[in-house]
């Protein structure tokens, strides 16, 4: 599975009700959901309903956003492995914050599956899954430059805003540059899995690719910096971000999101 940043950016330029929501609102939504989910208690069966409602809400939004399913599947497939791995191991571990364990199964070699471990593993995986869904919703419906501008409007310090503006502007330039280097290497039959050439040589070639990218991006940085100086850039300068009015629909979406979070806390569930 591989998703290139260009594919990711292409999805963000689609038109849909979700794409139309102001970036600030989407950032706040993602932050609220993530912080709420992380703050949920570690071990509670009630969590499952809460997380289920939140996940259903996020999936509904993803459905409305017209993002291609194959793209979504690929995004999840990239994000999941490390978290999934650690969650799967939980039933076999003795969590240090617990004292009593009920053993469900005894496997050979003294491996024990505990009830509590299973509950903790399932909880942590679901929590992680909801967080990933929220981030994927944010990043596949908001373009990177829009994200940076929204973060600036939300009060990101001006130096950080400048750094990120420059970074996302050149991300795609260097991405394509790496693509060209790779194509050039392929035409010369270069292949990192090739075992027939000495390892040292392959490693050197990779090193040179990296050096070339490093120097080219440094030189691009120099050129950009100098041209900025020519146009009057100084230490007090900051990125201009135009004011953008929030619409009633934006506030409505934010209110609905907080509403969903509050609903999950009603004892009925």
């Amino acid at each position: 599975m591989h998703v290139s940043i260009t594919e990711m950016e292409r999805e963000t330029y689609k038109k849909s009700p979700i794409h139309g929501i102001d970036g600030r609102i989407k950032i706040l939504m993602t932050l609220a959901i993530t912080i709420y989910v992380v703050a949920l208690p570690r071990m509670e069966t009630l969590n499952f309903t809460k997380l289920g409602i939140l996940e259903a809400y996020l999936l509904l939004l993803l459905l409305f956003s017209k993002i291609e399913l194959s793209h979504l599947a690929a995004r999840f497939a990239i994000a999941l492995p490390f978290g999934l791995g650690i969650s799967i191991l939980q039933p076999f571990l003795k969590q240090p914050f617990l004292h009593d364990f009920t053993i469900m199964y005894r496997l050979p070699m003294g491996i024990e599956v505990t009830n509590e471990g299973l509950l903790y593993g399932a909880t942590i995986f679901l929590k992680f899954f909801v967080c990933i869904s929220a981030v994927i919703l944010l990043s596949s419906t908001t373009s990177m430059s829009e994200l940076v501008a929204s973060a600036r409007r939300l009060g990101l310090p001006k130096e950080m805003a400048l750094l990120f503006t420059m970074m996302v502007r050149y991300l795609f330039v260097f991405w394509n540059m790496l693509g060209r280097i790779r194509t050039a290497q392929k035409t010369r039959c270069f292949e990192i899995w090739n075992r027939k050439v000495p390892r040292k040589w392959t490693l050197e070639q990779i090193g040179y690719t990296i050096s070339s990218l490093f120097i080219r991006s440094y030189e691009q940085g120099e050129r950009t910096y100098q041209s900025m100086l020519c146009r009057g850039y100084c230490a007090d300068a900051h990125v201009y971000v135009d004011k953008k009015k929030l619409h009633i629909t934006d506030f409505a979406v934010l209110a609905i999101t907080f509403g969903v979070i509050i609903i999950t806390n009603i004892q009925v569930f």
């Binding site: 130096e159 400048l162 750094l163 990120f164 503006t165 420059m166 970074m167 996302v168 502007r169 050149y170 991300l171 330039v173 260097f174 991405w175 540059m177 790496l178 990192i192 899995w193 392959t202 490693l203 990779i206 690719t209 990296i210 990218l213 490093f214 080219r216 991006s217 440094y218 691009q220 940085g221 120099e222 950009t224 910096y225 900025m228 850039y233 100084c234 230490a235």
Partner: peptide, 22 residues
Amino acid sequence: NMIPLFGVLAAGIFVLQTINIA
């Protein structure tokens, strides 16, 4: 004040981290 330069370089570092090495 090297802030713009480091912004551009960070993009390069991001991309070179995507080079998978066997």
